[in-house]
Nucleic acid binder design. Structure first.
Length: 305
DNA sequence: CTTACGGCCTGGGTGC
DNA sequence: TGCACCCAGGCCGTAA
């Protein structure tokens, strides 16, 4: 599924093609997946695309402001789990579940396809864009070690949940969270507040290493992910834990396990990533101490002589 | 602040 | 070969 490295790969592909192109036609398939289409949709044809950017898992296409108005418009796209955004010749056969077509002035077509329809395409004003993206957390690739640490220390949530929470870090999903935790040797159930400074530092570099490596290999093609040219990524071949339940850990040979943490399926090595201690340890009857104190006090009779 | 859960979707896997 | 069924998974809203 598309996470930060996949979206980054798509964005880079589109950056070499879209800027400067004009959208001459814009139409949707049988199912309209665009929110608020009536509001802004008629402003799309004739507009020129000026920039393609990534923000967390969101892609946005910036449109050149019209001469008549100064409002800047953006096409905001989230690929969900199975979304694809590709550019090809306009006369190419249309794959099933293709929902949106942007015909470009060079004869090509930008298409949005999404079998499961968890993805979203929105045409938004600049203020609406701020509203939607402003809530998102740090970009894990841009965060310094200290910024990263601050997002985790003192948090009572599980590290798995923190890494995947888009309001904490933008862009991490299930694959890269599991892969990063494995690399840093941290169990997904550990609480943020219980990680040592050294562990958080290690996690910071693990996250960045894994994301950079995944971008270098053009993402993980699991589910339906393809890049802007319809090509598969390669990083799924390097997964150490994700979807490798029962296979051997490449570091120690122990069988990879899968459990549910914070409602998400989580893959880890039980040997390399030690489970946190349960708080069973301090469940002993608390009265003991009091009793002991009472008993011990009078017993201390010193035998004189 | 944190977790749990339902809903949105469809294809792929399982079992018969 | 087919069919019923289950479920993952990002994200949001709501409830606990």
């Amino acid at each position: 599924m598309p996470e930060l490295p996949e979206v980054e790969t798509v964005v880079r592909g589109l950056q070499s093609v879209l800027p400067g192109r004009r959208i001459v036609e814009f139409r949707s398939g049988k199912i309209n997946v665009i929110k608020d289409l009536a509001l802004l949709g008629d402003q799309i044809p004739g507009s020129r695309l000026v920039a393609v950017r990534r923000y967390g898992k969101f892609l946005h296409l910036e449109l050149e402001p019209r001469a008549s108005e100064n409002a800047r418009l953006f096409i905001l796209i989230h690929l969900g789990m199975t979304g694809q955004l590709t550019v090809g010749a306009a006369d190419e056969p249309v794959a099933p579940h293709t929902h949106i077509f942007f015909t470009l002035d060079d004869g090509r077509e930008l298409r949005f396809r999404d079998p499961r329809r968890f993805g979203r395409v929105q045409i938004v004003s600049e203020s609406r864009r701020e509203e939607l993206l402003g809530k998102l957390g740090l970009d894990p690739l841009e965060a310094s070690a200290e910024q990263f640490r601050k997002q985790i220390a003192n948090r009572r949530a599980r590290i798995k949940a923190l890494l995947m929470d888009q309001h904490v870090f933008r862009g991490m999903g299930n694959i890269y969270t599991d892969e990063s935790l494995w690399r840093a040797r941290i169990h997904p159930s550990r609480l943020g507040a219980n990680l040592t400074a050294a562990e958080i530092a290690k996690l910071h570099s693990a996250v960045q290493h894994v994301l950079h490596e995944a971008i270098r290999l053009r993402g993980s093609s699991v589910s339906d992910y393809v890049d802007s040219e319809g090509q598969n990524g390669e990083f799924q071949l390097r997964h150490r834990v994700y979807q490798r339940e029962g296979k051997k850990c490449s570091r120690c040979g122990t069988k990879i396990r899968r459990i549910i943490v914070a409602g998400r399926s989580s893959h880890f090595c039980p040997q390399c990533q030690r489970a946190p201690r349960t708080r069973k340890l301090r469940k002993k009857a608390p009265r003991r101490h009091a009793e002991r104190r009472i008993k011990t006090a009078p017993v201390t009779t010193k035998t004189p002589e």
